[in-house]
Amino acid sequence: MAQLTLNSLYKTYEGGARAAVSDVSISVRDGGFLALLGPSGCGKTTVLRMIAGFEHPSDGTIQLGDRTLAGAGKMVPPEHRNMAMVFQSYALWPHMSVADNVGYPLKVRGVSGEARRRKVMEALSTVRLEPYADRRPADLSGGQRQRVALARCLVTEPAVVLLDEPLANLDRHLRQEMEETFREFHARSGATMIYVTHDQAEAMALATDVAVMSEGRLLQLATPEEIYARPEGALVGGLIGQGSILQVPLLTGEQRLFDWHALRHLLTDRRPGHSSDMLVRPQDVEIVEGGMSATVASVLFEGERYALKLALADGQLLRAFSRQPVKVGDVLGIVIRSGWRL
């Protein structure tokens, strides 16, 4: 197994106004779990399809270890890349039984008889579907189909496993169960996994690395913790975690992390002109007597707490949590423990 490297990938379509993928460079270490995160149409699926070999990069290279998969006039077709993919629609062949679906990659590779049957049953047991081996995909539920698709990936020990929004068609309860299955699968197989999603919670929960994309460009590539704590730019800040972005007077220094002392000064500074974006997480907003005053604009009861939207004196909105019930229109005192300049 080896490291998967995307080297300044571009993809433009005939007649497309802008590049679908533009200058994306990512390196996924062997055994890593990379989530490609971004809103729909950001180019993440195109990147995945280029890795699989369904799309030809317009420029740039894709390498797996020292083997060039695409670029420099070379193109390894998908059938020779030793990859596997879980499709959003699962892509199970309706005319084959579950066991035949799972065993197809082996059949193509010329594995037959007892060896194939054993491997298929092994793969099915990892996803706990052995009793369903002879069923047709049409007889299975959504989650079971998903697990068949996963077993089909497992059976050949591929170098890279690609997952294209695999949870998009499942209900919330099944999603949690499947997330667990994916984690287990990753830990057990040790395969490099690339996971495309528009759901940041999913990305953060599963991946060892998160790549945030927007409009075909890679905005930030980091571990989930890093990307949560130190997002780059308003787009990433708005996409990852809950938080409010406040406009503060233009900041030019090196400083990114601000405490209450500095923030209070910035928020009361009413000079007109250019502004900087300041990300404030709701858990960093404390409600205390004698803090800066803010008016409750909306209240949402979430069970363990109340989620508030507070209006500051200049009308900017701030998210916060409260353990006590409050009413719309109440005036509270607040202290912002920390803010991150985007």
């Binding site: 059938e79 993919m85 499709f87 199970l92 062949w93 005319h95 193509v108």
Partner: peptide, 25 residues
């Protein structure tokens, strides 16, 4: 189309995919 793409990633070439996947469907 993903039904055929899945077969490609499984390693099946054009003739194989046509015979195993596309024609039965």
């Amino acid at each position: 189309p993903s039904l055929e793409e899945a077969a490609r990633l499984s390693g099946a070439g054009f003739g194989r995919r046509m015979w195993d996947i596309v024609v039965p469907l």
